Simulated assay, not measured.
Amino acid sequence: MRKDLFNFGPALGYFFRKPDPTRHTNFNLRTMHFINKLSMAMFLVGFIVLLYRWFLR
């Protein structure tokens, strides 16, 4: 089994990294990143709800 299979560091870093001042940004890019973060957060909440229903009921 590969050790890096469950490496969630890059995914968590996506949520908590600081903006890079050297990188150009615009409205479309900021919107895309916001939608990506929102969709990942909604997925995690849904997954936690499913785990709760499966194991605690």
Rank of each mutant, 00 (worst) to 15 (best):
R23F: 05
T25K: 12
L44Y: 07
N26Y: 03
F16C: 07
F15A: 12
L5N: 08
T31G: 05
W54E: 13
F15S: 04
R23A: 11
P21V: 00
N36Y: 03
F6G: 12
L38C: 06
G9Q: 13
P21D: 01
L50S: 02
P19N: 01
L5K: 15
H33A: 01
T25E: 10
R2D: 11
I48V: 14
F34N: 04
Y14E: 15
F16G: 09
N7I: 06
Y52I: 07
K3G: 06
T25M: 10
K3R: 06
P19K: 02
A11V: 15
K37A: 15
L12V: 14
F34E: 04
A41P: 02
F15P: 04
R23G: 00
L56W: 09
F43S: 13
L44E: 08
I35T: 12
M42Y: 06
G9I: 13
K18S: 06
W54P: 01
W54L: 15
W54C: 10
P10F: 04
R53C: 00
P10I: 02
M42C: 15
F34D: 05
N36S: 06
G46H: 07
N7Q: 07
V45N: 01
V45P: 00
P19G: 00
F15E: 14
L50A: 05
N28V: 04
M32F: 10
F8T: 10
L50E: 04
N36P: 00
F16W: 07
M1Y: 00
H33M: 03
M40F: 09
K18R: 03
D20P: 07
A11I: 15
L44F: 09
R30Q: 07
R30K: 11
F15H: 11
L29P: 00
R30E: 10
R17P: 04
T22D: 10
T31H: 07
F16E: 09
D20S: 12
M40I: 13
N28H: 06
V49P: 02
P19I: 00
A11C: 12
R30G: 00
A41C: 06
F34L: 12
R53I: 01
M1I: 00
N26S: 12
R53K: 02
S39G: 03
K3F: 11
